[in-house]
Simulated assay, not measured.
Amino acid sequence: MRIALLAGGDFAAACLHRLVADRHAIICVVPSWQRSSDLVRAAGNLGIPVRPPHDSRLEDVLRDDTPELLVSVDYDRILPASTLTIPTVAAINAHPGLLPTYRGTGVVMWAIQNGEPRLGLTVHHMDVGIDSGDIIVQRVLAIEPDEDYGHILALIGAELSDLLAEAVRLIEQRADSRSPQDPRLATYFAERHPCDDRIDWSRSSVEIVNQVRALTIPGTGARTWLGDGELIVWAARQRLDAPSYRCTPGLVVGRTSSGPIVKTGDSTIVVERVQHIGGAPADSPSWRIGTLLGLDPLEAITALRCRVSELEERIRKLERG
């Protein structure tokens, strides 16, 4: 089939290579605004034209290319109806989420952070909504409790390209079925904000460990404060035999051979790998017992008020000459 591919993110290049291997004619690639370097490089190596996503004439260019199929993979723009009607056969999207739940962006991270035991992959027809079109094919993958973001991305990379290839084959053979999504089951996930990546030490141990494994490499990392500096926590694990008790969340209360023991909202976890902003990752941080992680709001407000008072006094001195 003649395919125009609009894509970006972690799975775009793998999907492109699979479509080419299946002998489809990729007439052009439109990279997303972000995280598209692998896709652009792959398209260049294959001699496939790359159309800039910011071209005001993109719809005209796509019409001139006369695609039968418009394929979206982690594309970061909502396509208008005028674009969706360009292909002569269909416009479809390969989505790394279990629809109708996990619509939106960053859903792999959110699924891990939410402690989901499984992850869904979906290829669906596109409409003017967000991941709301009829489902063509779907696959469910188990998520093990010790698997982190990097492991799951590697698994999805192969599975999603296979699922996309299956959907395209069904469409080509006019054998694809359309399963409408139940809007009552729909949930939507928006782009992550910095506050979503900050560790709230008053949460349960399992919630904090899930957040860390959801954001670890190649993600941005779970963040916390140590003193007045920011810290990334790349790896942490639960202590399955840890007692439940109340104490200051974020307090270092012990040590193991693999790292310090930190109090959470219900028990404790072991922090195994961290990185100071601007520094190198370090295994088994050597924090002393009694070290407090996280930001105390009252302490931060007090420090800010003191700083403001100091600045006001300096201004008064300057005004007095």
Rank of each mutant, 00 (worst) to 15 (best):
residue 107 V to N: 06
residue 107 V to Q: 03
residue 108 V to R: 07
residue 108 V to F: 02
residue 109 M to G: 01
residue 110 W to Q: 14
residue 110 W to R: 15
residue 110 W to G: 00
residue 111 A to L: 04
residue 111 A to V: 05
residue 112 I to D: 05
residue 113 Q to P: 00
residue 114 N to Q: 12
residue 114 N to T: 00
residue 115 G to A: 07
residue 116 E to K: 04
residue 117 P to F: 05
residue 117 P to S: 06
residue 118 R to I: 02
residue 119 L to V: 06
residue 119 L to A: 04
residue 120 G to P: 05
residue 120 G to N: 09
residue 121 L to H: 01
residue 122 T to I: 05
residue 124 H to P: 05
residue 124 H to E: 09
residue 125 H to K: 05
residue 125 H to L: 14
residue 126 M to S: 11
residue 127 D to P: 10
residue 127 D to Y: 04
residue 127 D to N: 15
residue 129 G to I: 09
residue 129 G to K: 10
residue 129 G to E: 08
residue 130 I to E: 14
residue 133 G to V: 12
residue 134 D to S: 15
residue 134 D to K: 13
residue 137 V to A: 06
residue 138 Q to A: 14
residue 138 Q to M: 13
residue 139 R to K: 15
residue 141 L to Q: 11
residue 141 L to Y: 02
residue 143 I to K: 00
residue 144 E to D: 09
residue 144 E to M: 04
residue 144 E to Y: 10
residue 144 E to H: 14
residue 147 E to R: 07
residue 147 E to L: 01
residue 149 Y to H: 14
residue 150 G to Q: 06
residue 151 H to D: 15
residue 155 L to N: 05
residue 155 L to K: 15
residue 156 I to M: 02
residue 160 L to A: 01
residue 160 L to C: 02
residue 163 L to P: 04
residue 163 L to E: 06
residue 164 L to C: 02
residue 164 L to T: 05
residue 167 A to H: 03
residue 171 I to C: 07
residue 172 E to L: 03
residue 174 R to H: 12
residue 174 R to T: 08
residue 179 S to M: 14
residue 179 S to D: 13
residue 179 S to E: 14
residue 183 P to C: 03
residue 185 L to P: 03
residue 186 A to S: 15
residue 188 Y to C: 05
residue 188 Y to D: 03
residue 190 A to D: 13
residue 191 E to A: 15
residue 192 R to T: 00
residue 192 R to C: 00
residue 193 H to Y: 07
residue 193 H to F: 02
residue 193 H to M: 13
residue 194 P to V: 06
residue 196 D to A: 00
residue 196 D to M: 00
residue 196 D to V: 00
residue 197 D to N: 10
residue 199 I to F: 07
residue 200 D to S: 14
residue 201 W to D: 13
residue 202 S to E: 10
residue 204 S to V: 03
residue 205 S to H: 04
residue 209 V to H: 09
residue 209 V to N: 06
residue 209 V to F: 07
residue 210 N to C: 07
residue 210 N to E: 07
residue 213 R to P: 07
residue 214 A to L: 08
residue 215 L to G: 01
residue 215 L to D: 02
residue 215 L to Q: 05
residue 217 I to F: 08
residue 217 I to V: 11
residue 218 P to L: 06
residue 220 T to F: 04
residue 221 G to E: 10
residue 223 R to Y: 11
residue 225 W to M: 15
residue 225 W to T: 06
residue 225 W to I: 03
residue 226 L to R: 12
residue 226 L to D: 08
residue 227 G to M: 07
residue 227 G to W: 06
residue 227 G to T: 08
residue 227 G to Q: 08
residue 229 G to W: 03
residue 230 E to N: 05
residue 230 E to G: 12
residue 231 L to T: 07
residue 231 L to S: 05
residue 231 L to A: 10
residue 235 A to I: 00
residue 235 A to S: 08
residue 240 L to F: 11
residue 240 L to M: 07
